[in-house]
């Protein structure tokens, strides 16, 4: 991409260094949809059915997040570079989760068992020093 050796001449150009005007959807309509989704995420857990809670709370959160990213942050209109950048960080996040989850979430395995913290604290200090 070439360098612009002069300042944009007016405000409109300033906003579009990439030479493309942002398409502005009906933001109020999107906002109202987000509010409806918020109400669903509040009412869903009131039914106290686990699967309904998961879908209405976390499923709806994912939809809301995508709506904000797409319509307010205009992520789909940004160069592909941005999508790859964000996707890479999300993959790193999943790698972190996959790498550490067994250590946190499993309490026993083949020839090992996690010692509860209370038991470690209850043991005499001398024991810990000797082992």
């Amino acid at each position: 991409m070439s360098l612009h050796d002069h300042a944009p001449s007016h405000a409109h150009e300033e906003g579009h260094g990439d030479g493309h005007a942002t398409h502005h959807p009906n933001y109020v309509k999107i906002y109202l949809i987000l509010l409806v989704l918020l109400v669903i995420s509040i009412l869903g857990p009131e039914l106290e059915i686990r699967i309904v809670t998961l879908v209405t709370a976390f499923g709806v959160a994912c939809i809301k997040a995508w709506m904000v990213a797409k319509n307010f942050m205009h992520i789909t209109m940004a160069p592909r570079y941005v999508l790859y950048l964000v996707a890479t960080t999300l993959v790193f996040m999943l790698l972190f989760f996959a790498g550490t989850a067994p250590d946190v979430m499993k309490f026993s395995g083949t020839r090992w068992e996690k010692t509860p913290v209370a038991h470690v604290q209850a043991a005499p200090h001398g024991d810990a020093a000797h082992h």
Binding site: S2, L3, H4, D5, D18, P79, Y81
Partner: peptide, 8 residues
Amino acid sequence: TRSTAGMP
């Protein structure tokens, strides 16, 4: 004013 990676 520079525009790299296809965006400001």
